[in-house]
Every structure is written in structure tokens, then in C-alpha cells.
Design a binder for these strands. Structure first.
Lengths: 192, 192
DNA sequence: ACCTGAACACCGTTCAAGT
DNA sequence: ACCTGAACACCGTTCAAGT
């Protein structure tokens, strides 16, 4: 893949994390890349193509990061402890959001190819969390672990949304801490 | 307030819950109201004015609903049990979102007057939840209760975001149930 | 008071032309 | 292969002017 195409994806990712898919526009994007708006179309025929490539790449990178975390530690407790840090990064970088979290809010206005990736991103995270939870408590009911994984994903996404509207990283940290205190990141999965 | 203005606010609320502030547009809005796009400006000079009025009204209505719930039940357990239902309503109504949750994602692109209301909405919810939690466990540390309130608000917001991207109300219900199983909606506030 | 036409700015997109 | 200016159709926004 050409260097320019990579640059477009990198700049677009950063911009989309701040402004979403709707707030992303070719002319501003091109200015940051150092080319003209029309030139973007040489690499991505339509905005839908760019959006889908963006979400797909973001999803792949995110999954790779999670798998690396698991491979490096092989420790469910360490993975669950580190997980909220993944979303923290975006907030620390100019009060941005997880790209797919942002796009989830815009869901109704997303091209189908982008919807697929946004949905897939959440699926991948829930699957990874489920795997980690089961590794932490081998005998656990799989459905219960998956539900717990969803709760973790939801809490982290919501904490991010809350912290963003306060533009305050401390709010994120404290909210995550409160979730931790309630036992959300523990490896045991209670079922009524 | 004139009837037309009320109609504009009602239609705009519904549309903004689906498409956000950025996705809200005067012509489509006006068509639903039965006037021309330019006529909206007679009531709301700018989109920022409409957005602020919208968020303010939404916030007021939401707080009134919460206060009524508390006044009617006077029961912390019942209030915490009913709380997720508030956000469920929007999803059940055409996979919409809480207006201020949607706007929280768009925060960077919001006019200041709208930001104030979006922030205030989250504050109001956290305050109400804190009050309910303290009523449920009178001796609790107030800071701990507030952090717990934030965790609840975050989890519910995130569950909404997740369910929206799956366009599946069942995902919302199951995620909330998982949060319940972990004890997030209990009236006791554990602090390590 | 209430509403509108028309101008304006901006968008994604196309395409012929340039390097 | 890569990039651009100009043009296009569309749309949100604004404002002076209409009733």
C-alpha cells in the first residue's frame, strides 16, 4: 500500500475519532495530508470506501493489540486490569474517542460496509473478553461469561462517553475505578 | 410558546435522537413540521439555538421523570431497578438513543450552549443516582456513592451504544442483566 | 407575527488535463 | 502512477423581503 494511502488512513483515523464519520470531510482531511480533496478519491473512490477501510483497519489494529496483550501476559487478571487502558489512550490524545464507539452513535447514518465493521469491532472485543474471562474461571458457563464481557465493554464505552463530555480524563479513571470496586473486572462471573 | 415552536422541538428531538446534532437538518425537519426550512429560523435563529433549546428541554424532561419516579416510589431499590428502562425507551422507539448520550459523542462539534446542557444532563443523572444510592444505604461515603452513580450511568450509556450498533433490544436487556448480576444496581457501595 | 425565495457556503463526486 | 482545477448537483444556512 502506498505511503500516501497510509497517511490518508492515519490522518482520517485521528479526525474521525474526534468528529465521527459525519464530521469527516475530504477537503480538511486532504489539507492535513498535504494534497487536494479530489486526490483522496484516487485512493478511496467514495466516502463510504474510506469509512469502511478506516473502520476495518481500526478493528484489525485493535484486535491485534488485544491478542498481543493476551499473548504477552497469558494472565486473565492482568488483561482485565489493562483493558480500560485501551480506551483511555484516545481520551488522553485530545479527548478523542474509540472510532467504533463514536460510529456506534452514528449507526443510522453509516453506509452498510461501515456498519459491518462497527458491529464486528464490538463483537471482537466481546469475544476477546469472553475468552479472557473463561481463562480466568475455566468452569464458567460460556453464556454467562459472554454477558459479563458485554457488561465490561458497555461500561468502558460509557465511561469514555461520560469523560468525553466532561473533557476530563480523571472522570474516566474514577468511573473505571468504581466499576472495579463493584467487581466488574473480576474473573468470576456471578449468575443470580 | 407557540404551537409551531413546540412541534419543531418535538420533531427535532426525535430526529436528533436518531441522527445526532450533526445529522439534524432544517429542510427535513421543516418538512415533517409542515413549513419551509428557512422558517425554522424564525423560532430558532441558528442551529446552535435549536440544539441548545433541544438539549435543555430534553434535560429538564428527563430530570422531571427521574424526580417523579423517586417521588412516586420513595424506594431506592425500585428506582435503581427502573433506571435502565429510561434509556431502553429510546432504543425501543426506532433504535434511537438518549439525545445527550448521542451528543456526548459529538462533543467536539457542539456549540458551547449545547455543551453546557449535555454536561448538565450527565450531572443531573449522576446527582439523582447518588441521592438514590445514599437513601438506600444512609451511612455511605458520599464520594463513593457518586462514583458508583457514575459507574451506573456509564454502564447504561454504554449498553445503549452497544445495543444500537447491533440494532437489537435484547442485547441491551442482557447487558443490563449482566450488570445487575455483578451487583452494579445494588444499593450498597463497596469501596475496596 | 409568520413565512419564504434566493443567495451563499460547503459537501461529495466526477473528469479532463497535467506531471 | 499520481495529482489537480474546475465544474456539477446537492444541501444546510442565512437574510432581505414578502404576506
Amino acid at each position: 500500500m502506498s505511503e500516501t494511502k497510509e497517511t490518508i488512513l492515519a490522518v482520517a483515523r485521528s479526525r474521525a475519532q474526534a468528529h465521527g464519520y459525519l464530521g469527516l470531510n475530504f477537503r480538511d482531511l486532504a489539507k492535513d495530508v498535504g494534497i487536494k480533496g479530489a486526490s483522496i478519491h484516487y485512493y478511496f473512490p467514495t466516502k463510504a470506501d474510506l469509512g469502511a477501510a478506516l473502520a476495518k483497519r481500526y478493528r484489525e489494529d485493535s484486535v491485534a493489540g488485544l491478542e498481543k496483550l493476551w499473548a504477552d501476559t497469558q494472565d486473565p487478571v492482568a488483561c482485565l486490569k489493562a483493558y480500560p487502558g485501551v480506551f483511555r489512550k484516545a481520551l488522553a490524545d485530545g479527548n478523542r474517542m474509540c472510532l467504533c464507539g463514536h460510529m456506534a452513535a452514528e449507526y443510522d447514518d453509516l453506509p452498510d460496509a461501515v456498519k459491518v465493521e462497527v458491529k464486528g469491532f464490538a463483537d471482537d472485543h466481546v469475544k476477546w473478553l469472553t475468552k479472557v474471562l473463561i481463562a480466568g474461571e475455566p468452569g464458567v458457563n460460556k453464556a454467562a461469561a459472554r454477558q459479563r464481557a458485554r457488561a465490561i465493554y458497555a461500561a468502558v464505552s460509557g465511561a469514555q462517553l461520560l469523560a468525553r463530555s466532561r473533557a476530563d480524563l480523571k472522570v474516566y479513571d474514577e468511573t473505571i475505578e468504581a466499576c472495579r470496586n463493584v467487581g466488574l473486572f473480576a474473573t468470576s462471573c456471578p449468575k443470580e
